[in-house]
Design a protein around this nucleic acid. Structure first.
Lengths: 211, 211
DNA sequence: TCAGTCATGTATACAGTGTAGATTCTATAC
DNA sequence: GTATAGAATCTACACTGTATACATGACTGA
């Protein structure tokens, strides 16, 4: 990766962080770099390729978080929390991950860390890839829901639009809990603990190192 | 909702189904309706509002699926499968759900059905909203991953980009399973069964109707 | 039958997007 | 000092959403 390409990438990431992903245009990035829009093309190819590069940059940011822990629990929890923090640093991460899937490179290394963690937990080999997809789908989905506002606006209270006139027995019974202010850190932690239940249920004695 | 608005909405949905969400422009929709782009505005307000209406339309499609079952298992499984099928019918559903979160109306009714199912399963009231978010986040995330191609391109085999030169011990050990062709129907079913483990772990005796 | 009113559709225009194609500049090699 | 290569630029095109101004048609009251 040339210096110029790195510079362009950094400018694009900065704009997305500050003004949102929609503000990332060839013209805005070029202006930030101090150059004409067309000057970007020899370096990054196209806007689509630029977005792919931004995505790969995210995986690169995530990698340093995976070396720390030793137990599979520390590894997987550490990675999940790091992913969520990254999504808060770069609120455009989630949409990009879901919308532009085919990346390679560092993203594969992150996946590999999850594979290793699940194997070490004692999950049978044939189940590991599926569980990795289950977990990563949830973690990315949660992070995206949080930054995009899908949570927090779905309960009747605080919803902008009109409520249907039909009765909502579930909401009615849960009214007192729906009124409570949510702690999203705590909810994420609780969700991860629930996912750990699945891992433990799948784990076989040999290799499982319960504390 | 006036006839004209319904007609516009139907045209937008049809275009999104056939050509993808990016092909939905004021001009393409107007042409389909047989009218000038500006003629849409009195009816739908803006393109953003049109996308919101498309989203609400999805929730409306989902509702008929929720009345069938009687047990909470049938209800929740039925809803999950219906959501996934809807996402295959309208591949643009997932991105829209994640990217444009604040809807009301029919979407709230779908949420309410999940609340009722979890309550009937015996999940303690304070845990129900969180579990609903966990489940819906996964289901929508899975459906989106599938239609957007996030699955199926993440394993080294078949990835377009270059693999990093570092070793991938997890992938190496799982090589034989990663080479297998995946059955995404079966994987979704297995994931739901795993999520059911969480529900059952949370369920308290009174109200739990195990078969 | 005529005039007035109101809703609906149209036409034009503007600022923005990604990017193809042709041109100009700059810096190094001989 | 001239030739060559690489990088940046300029112009232009087809697209996007939508603000503004205008036309058209149907329906009402006299």
């Amino acid at each position: 990766m040339t210096d110029r390409k790195q510079e362009i990438l950094a400018a694009a990431v900065a704009i997305a962080d500050e003004l949102g992903l929609d503000a990332v245009s060839m013209r805005s990035v070029a202006e930030r770099v101090g150059v004409t829009p067309m000057a970007l093309y020899p370096h990054i190819g196209s806007k689509s390729a630029l977005l792919d590069a931004m995505l790969e940059h995210l995986a690169g940011e995530l990698l340093p978080a995976v070396a720390a822990g030793d137990s599979w629990r520390e590894q997987l929890y550490g990675l999940a929390y790091a992913a969520r923090e990254m999504s808060r640093r770069h609120p455009w991460a989630g949409i990009l991950i879901f919308a532009r899937p085919s990346v390679a490179g560092d993203a594969v290394r992150v996946t590999d860390v999850v594979y290793q963690g699940l194997l070490e937990a004692g999950v049978p080999e044939p189940e590991v890839p599926r569980l990795e997809r289950l977990i990563s789908t949830f973690v990315v989905g949660y992070a995206l829901s949080e930054t995009a506002g899908r949570f927090g606006t779905r309960d009747p209270r605080g919803t902008r639009g009109q409520l249907p006139d039909v009765p909502l027995p579930g909401h009615a019974r849960l009214q007192r809990w729906l009124e409570e202010k949510r702690d999203w850190d705590e909810e994420f932690a609780a969700d991860l603990r629930d996912l750990e239940l699945i891992i433990e249920a799948k784990a076989q004695p040999p290799g499982g190192d319960d504390h």
